[in-house]
Amino acid sequence: MHMADALLSPAVGGTMWAATAATTFYCARKIAHRLDERKIPLMGVLGAFIFAAQMINFAIPGTGSSGHLGGGLLLAVLLGPHAAFLTLGSVLTVQALFFADGGLLALGANIFNLGFAPCFIAYPLLYKPLTGRQPGPGRRLFAAAAASVIGLQLGSLGVVVQTVTSGMLSLSFTGFLMLMQTIHLPIGLIEGLATAGVISFMIRVRPEIIAEGNRGPTSAGLPFARVLAILAAAAILTGGFLSWFASEKPDGLEWSLENSADRQEAAATARSNSPDKLRKRIALLPDYNFRAAEKTGGGVKRPDPGTSASGILGSIVVLVLVVLTGLLLGKKGRNRDR
């Protein structure tokens, strides 16, 4: 459920980057303060572990499909939320760059969706209270499943809110919401099972590791984490609603572009010294009927259909030019290399 650049508007993408950057700096400072230097290699290697672990699937009985580990919750249990957030951020960055999962603008949103919810909401507010001091295996399973499900639901809610406020989809908010939340319900459950399974295994063979993670800095950081969570939720909601309203009217940039485009068009028409002539020429292509599209109320500005013909033709020409440029530069480059 990686968010993609293509689905984001710069405002939403930028907001999410700001939220992620703020959380990252906060975590980095928090860790630097109480740094156990052992954690430096541990975080890096655990990040690589999560990466590798996500490639290993297990069979889900009776369905023929497979599931894998989520990572966020397990990292929070092993490292504490601050180090876990940074580590998960690193994992997502590598995925974005090497496997092109999402893209760079969406990376901010992805780190936030997949990192913040499990590390700062699901782990301290659900997993820890639910497991308590001496949890039995059943209780731990329940806690891990609940925390994973809620963490992933919050994450996918993030995806929905960010996508819809970006306004790239025709799908309605509720429709998209239903779709995403339903899909992620079983996924969260499976991730929770896998997380609980691995934690139980670790407790059997090396209990001190899990105990250490639990002792971590969370108890002290809890109030702040809660405040931060509330702030972030508020930021998402306000950001969302603001962009919602903003999309009713073209925003500043778009508006100014519209104006300048109009002016250029006027200039172009003036240059062709007879606007009628151009219209007649277009009419010479009888099959090409460019119907004026009305501005749909509340919708985003639609391109002036009069420019569509030139737009399509021009696009094709530009594409050809682009390919030629690429080939030319390639040839030149190779010649020079030789």
Binding site: Q264, L278, I282, S310, G311, L313, G314, V317, V318
Partner: peptide, 15 residues
């Protein structure tokens, strides 16, 4: 971003 290059080019060719 500011100038609709493709559309202008297309218009020119049509003309």
């Amino acid at each position: 971003r500011t100038i609709p290059v493709a559309e202008l080019l297309g218009g020119l060719i049509l003309e």
